[in-house]
Amino acid sequence: MLALLVLGASPAFAQKKTPAKAPAQKAATTGVPAAVLLKGKSVYTQSCLSCHQADGAGVDGLNPPLGKTDYVLGDKTRLINVLLNGLQGQDINGEPYHNVMPSQDYLTDQQMADVLTYVRNSFGNKASVVTVAEVKAVRGAKK
């Protein structure tokens, strides 16, 4: 049920199932440098762990998990905007969560790119990196 939702909502994930070798799929499965993951993990520990927990499993009914959610694996602009603006009152994979995600806009573009790359490649996720340029573009569009 959960997996179905993710498949339906996330083109990146769905592509992995198709035999065609799209460029997006290649990016999604190339290894991410260990140094980037390490930096991302450090930001995660500082800024995200207390709510989403060390294993990214979240807290029932309060803080959503970060494993295989359509937000994490889906559209990167939307994902970057979660960090820039925070989030409240949105169902995640069909579940409501009764806490507030505060804006993380005190993080630098580099820190956001690192932590999102880490999240997209941890907790059972495997997805393309988020680049500093992508974060910069979304932050710029917001201003």
């Binding site: 800024s47 925070g86 507030v100 505060p102 804006s103 005190y106």
Partner: peptide, 12 residues
């Protein structure tokens, strides 16, 4: 709210 901050749960 958590602690009646101007921005709920926001650092600082």
């Amino acid at each position: 709210s958590n602690s009646c901050q101007v921005k709920d749960r926001q650092k600082g």
